[in-house]
Simulated assay, not measured.
Amino acid sequence: MMTTSSLSEAPAAATPVGKVTPRGVVSSEWLKFWSLRSSWIALAASLVVLLAFGVIASATYSPPTAGNSDQGMGDGSSDAVSLALMGTPLVSLVVGSLGVLLFAGEYSTGMIRSTLTAVPTRLPVLFAKSAVVALLVLVLTTIGALMAFALGTIGLDGEKISLSLGDEGVLRSLLGFGVYVALVAAFGVALGALLRSPAGGISSLLGIMMILPNLTSLLPDSMADALEPRFPSTAGEAMFSLHQSADSLSPGGGFVVFAGWVALALAAAAFRLKRTDV
């Protein structure tokens, strides 16, 4: 005969335990992303920087003339796309830092314990964070690039370098920019998960993306020429450059190289995430 105690215990014993699914992890990271004020600020700042730099560069452009060394933010080798994307270095730093903070920030606050308790397999957290931030950055910066280019054409009206969206390579360059910046954001997530320190992750991002290419000046010319196009930032720039120089990678080659860097960083972060206790 069942007692009152056994009746009360039966439903609890039969209650199924919720299963962790990739969709559930992505949904959780999506909600977590939008609950952070820093996410809103970083996305808004990247859009403002992209538009402001692009519009100002286009509006202040002046073609090269004899004895004219003051040419605004543009120069004679510029094109309408490069002027529209003048804010690329700063935008890359903003979204890359956002990626770092999404993962390393949880280690700083201790929230990572709750996250990994909810998702004991761990790796879905890394990939979900990367996917969420990369997708959002891709959409926002692509729209921003298109807007910056459209507004820039107003300032370049009548100039020889003025282009339209239908001109060869223009749309490819603007879309390539969005893909590049999305990969930078995913790269930041990987560095944040690998180093687990906001300061360390952002410093490493800055060093790899902006300082490393400048160190090639210390190398022999032959070695520098071979290595520089394959650094993350220079390979990434090939993805959205309207014109490729003789020693640069093609847009497709730049994508493969930079995506390889991101994949390598994610693999290292995944290895550490699985091998360490927290």
Rank of each mutant, 00 (worst) to 15 (best):
A226T: 11
V137T: 15
A235F: 10
T153K: 11
L90G: 03
Q244N: 09
A52N: 01
A185S: 15
T115A: 13
A238S: 15
G18E: 13
V179G: 10
A131C: 07
Q71P: 00
L227K: 00
A193N: 06
A193P: 04
F187I: 02
L98W: 08
A259Q: 01
L212F: 13
L266N: 08
T117Y: 09
F258Y: 15
T117W: 03
G201H: 05
A145L: 11
M210K: 00
F177E: 04
F271L: 15
G158H: 11
F103Q: 06
Q244G: 09
P64T: 12
L206I: 15
T117A: 15
G176I: 03
I202G: 09
R122L: 04
G76C: 05
A104Y: 08
A190D: 10
S78H: 09
L50H: 03
S6M: 07
E106C: 08
S39L: 09
L126T: 03
S162L: 09
S164E: 10
L183Y: 03
V179L: 15
S97V: 09
A263F: 04
V132R: 11
V170K: 00
R272L: 14
S197E: 03
A45M: 12
T216C: 00
L98G: 15
D167M: 02
G192Y: 04
S233Y: 05
I154F: 14
M111S: 13
I154D: 00
V17L: 12
L205R: 01
E237I: 06
D79W: 09
L249W: 06
M239K: 04
A134Q: 07
L31C: 10
V26A: 14
G74W: 07
I56A: 14
V189S: 04
M209Q: 12
D79T: 06
A80F: 05
L227Y: 04
P124E: 07
G192K: 08
T153W: 04
T117I: 07
A44V: 15
R23Q: 07
V26Q: 00
G253L: 07
E29Y: 02
